[in-house]
Design a protein around this nucleic acid. Sequence first.
RNA 1: GCAGGUUUAGCUCAGCGGUAGAGCACCAGUAUCACACACUGGGGGUCGUAGGUUCAAACCCUACAACCUGCACCA
Length: 1174
Amino acid sequence: MTEIPKAYEPKAVEEKWYQFWLDQKCFVADPARVSEKRPAYSIVIPPPNVTGVLTMGHVLNNTIQDILARKARMDGKEVLWLPGTDHAGIATQTVVEKTLRKEGKMKHRDDLGREKLLEHIWAWKEKHGGIIINQLKKLGASCDWTRERFTMDPDYSRCVQKVFVDLYKKGLIYRGKRMVNWDPAARTALSDEEVNMVEEKGHLWHIKYPVLDDAGCQMPERFVVVATTRPETMLGDEAVAVNPTDPRYTHLVGKKLLLPLRNKSIPVIADEFVDPKFGTGCVKVTPAHDKADYEMGVRHNLPFTIVIGPNGAMTNEAGDGFAGLDRAEARKSVVEHLEKLGLLVKVEDYVHNVGYSERSNVAIEPYLSEQWFLKYPSVEKAIECVAGSAGAPPAAVGALADSSERTRTSGAWDSAERPSVEGGAPSTAREGAGAPLMRFHPDRWAKTYTHWMANIRDWCISRQLWWGHRVPVWYNEEAKSKLGRKLPVIELSGDELSGANIKELRAAAWDFADKHLLLNRTFHNDETGWEILVRPASLEHAFTHLGPPNIKVVVVLPEIIRTAVKVGTLWHVPENENFKRVHLFVAAARVAGELYQVKITVKEHLNGQKLYDHQLFKIEAPDGVSPMPAAVASEPTRPTSGAEIQIGALFRDVNTDTTFVRCQIEFPGEGWTQDPDVLDTWFSSWLWPFATMGWPEQTETLKKFYPTADLVTGPDIIFFWVARMIMAGHEFMGDLPFRNVYFTGIIRDKQGRKMSKSLGNSPDPLDLIAKFGADALRFGTMRSAPLGQDILFDEQNVELGRNFCNKLWNACRFRQMVGQASRLSPSDSSQPTENETGATPVPQVPAFEVQGEINPALLTSDDKWILLRLDQAIREIDAAFAEYKFSEATATLYRFFWSEYCDWYVEASKAALRPVEELKGEELKSGDAGASLTLQPFNPSTSEAHARKANKLAVIDFVLSHTLRLFHPFLPFITEDLWHGLGFSADMPEDQGGKTIIFAHWPKPLSDDEKSHYGLDATADQVATAKYDLVGKGRNLRREFNIPSGKKIKFVLKPAGDLPAYEAEVIKNLLNAEVVELNPAYAAPKGTPSALSPLGELFLPLEGLVDVAAEKARLTKELAKITTEIEKVAQKLNNPGFVAKVPPHVLEEHKSRLAEWQGKQKHAQSALDALANL
RNA sequence: GCAGGUUUAGCUCAGCGGUAGAGCACCAGUAUCACACACUGGGGGUCGUAGGUUCAAACCCUACAACCUGCACCA
């Protein structure tokens, strides 16, 4: 046969199987397959930055998601793991700008212009955007790549803009001039969440401001002293504030001060904000450069003088000598000047916190600018839905306890994954809120979440960048340009049409229109020269649905059309496909003394016809309108009164009127320009769970896979992303975006430092994969990542993963070898296998039947023991999954497979697995002494040996096939390879492991029926355990007497009871003994080292080589240890309180433990005594 | 300042009332035919400190300390 490599070689295996999975569409989710029996399970990936590269953080995060997804597939669910990337506005634009600057293609983005820069960024995205996706594939991520999304995809962009428009229409989005966090490097506003406060050692400069007298002259030696951490901002000071109750300064309130360096007079104001106890009690007020000062500026009506520009340099307002300086240079210069003038009192060291841009890492500047803000929607619902986040502590604790109880008793994954409304404890703390629907893991993050939600502030969503979703707001430049133009005011007295009520008024109006031939006739507009058609339908609308002025105005219809001024065009006419576009006109009319704005829409038909419509809005008469002269109307056309009004005066607020500003996705029409700002990247990310599934269309995917089951992310983006997604889910989908949120820890280096590029302490995961394999990286990471704790990364973890894979590989290789060796057995009728291709390293169909039937009658104590251990492992792993404790699951897998299966079970089984023919004629030596010959050696017949071996292999296959499946979510590649290699796929149905282990069923713990069928009871367990205990003691004896572990030696066992020959054979093997003599009557030579075990007394005959001193030392030491233990137990038992109050089973347990130690003590003591006589 | 977390063997972490555990590292031995990416054995801890509750505390309670992470901040 072909050599199977001794060590697992991951590279080829990984590439082969990943391609296989892709080819077989194993990761593709199909909503049509979802049914009651096949529930949906979905996760959306936290989209990484499109230009990013894989970090250890991604490895951790995506491995967990992959484990969840693969586990769910094995649980028989229809799984959607939806991947994609994020456009990451600032980060990406910054990277590309930096590159372009390096290449000398620009100095500032303005040099290139918006379009050109965007071209470069898109090109960058095309080139680098796939990198991280390919890296995720290397990791084994089982995402449905056919559904990969990017936050700047056209469909996705539409979602973002639709959401903006909807929220705008709900009145939740507004524009305003506010103090925002300004990043002078990226030159954009940032949200509060994007600012890191960093403690810094700075200074507190104390500056004298001279007091001025009423005449504005400097008063000698009269100063006010202010303290500041930012002296450069004094150039923009507009006041000095004191507390109104501060007796030291009340006399100064209202007085003027001279602002040094600017030689400008500023007032002393009184404001509650000032803390008289801090510093001098006087605060300089810079309204345009400090949040608190801004508030004061608003309260006291101060000017807002901007002295630091958007680039962080001083503006012209800062004055000669300062303008153009960077803010840091300006600080130096200001201090120097003040010092020269003798106005600097002192400089103190001062520790304070400075906000830094999370992106550019430069100090942020509070900056007054016009921005878009969002009042968060669905806040209440988002607070209520998170378990443990609200309500009284007892209720929250009760809910958790109850729910985890369910998880434990049912042992089912489902209960943890989708807590039902009935399942949770009803919360009395929140009326009618029902049970919490979402769980955080670890749940303490719910507190952080609630705290933030409770103190939530409006979100600054605009960014002064180019890479991102542009704000879907349009400004009508055409209208703005005409704001100053004047319009004639059309006068009508209001009683030209008579009617006692509205009905009669309408009749009169129709009569008038008819009589004066207004209907189906065109009228001329002076400004455009257009002929505008008045249809009956137009008047019908105005007459029927709008108020009397709209009816009365019919008498001046021709004048209105003639004088109307065109203020805009809209392309978007959704109501009627026949219209090409709509033109907006405005005219002015005074009806019965009241001034009206006449909004006219002229619909331009495809055939060129222009159709009239009007609507009147009453406006307050502004100043400056010429008085109304008397006017008489009798003709269809008549002259205007001569009164005029500015177009601007007809609109109450040009910043909100839809004539000037429109919030809509589509380009409104000629003369409209879009808001230059883009939206915060998170304003697109918060829609991720449903925008990726086709929303706003009600797609099948959305119907079946939303809400998602689990979200796996870092707690650092709990506000940025998680909280916002929860709100968006409620607001737009009416449901939570996910049921569970798993918060990973932060990956740190060995020393506990955060991974960072500058420290160079972040290993490249791809290097690790190349060196150790993807499975090794996954296993090592998961093994060292306990729930809710930071992870200290050490390459040794990955090495350990590699070693583990190798162990798994070799254990399966061993199964191959013993299976094939048995080919020679006479009863074997299967075809000899040949390795035809040599392509795959492992796969050989073994001669022994794979997963043969287990015959309970032939099970040894070892077999039963390993089946019980397997059962235990499955239970532990299920429990770990239910609580998202992946490190516990890996620890269990490690323990079960390495120590229980390989070290004990396989070693113990080797006797039965030896080629059958070798057993022929071989006798188990039973010692020389005739006295011991009563015992039968273990020497089964050939056919019996064969049957035993077959059964052993069946057990091994049972264990391995379960083990591989348990491992699969963690180690997808190697398990797939071995699954096929060992032939487990051969007998399985195509969709249950036949094609791939991906769809093999997740192992179930053994049922009581199965356990009794196989005879798995406590006795079987005890026999094996006692045996291994004896072996441990024998090995220890061996070691204590420096017998090399390779040397075959003789042991003598004085059995405590019946010991089947088979068990003796196993003991012999595990002890690597030449022979284990079973001799109930053994009389050990004095000084023979021995150990006491439940199975009997084990002797290591040294045949005269006893080192008395060594043995004495050993026994003395052992005795000391025994004595300590006895003392500990005895102390407890001697305590009267203990005996009186302790539960009976604990008392019994202590008593038997004492007896056990006493037995050992006796044994050791007598051995020692024996030595004394030598 | 407020909140949360952590503190157990040299390292990383389990254990959360009833005999202190694992892996790695360390020491020693072993080329035994699945695996030296291995096997065998071993040493090593008054469980951060001080009190308290209890028959019994690493575990529960109360202080305190150190380190981390958020949040809020007065010039």
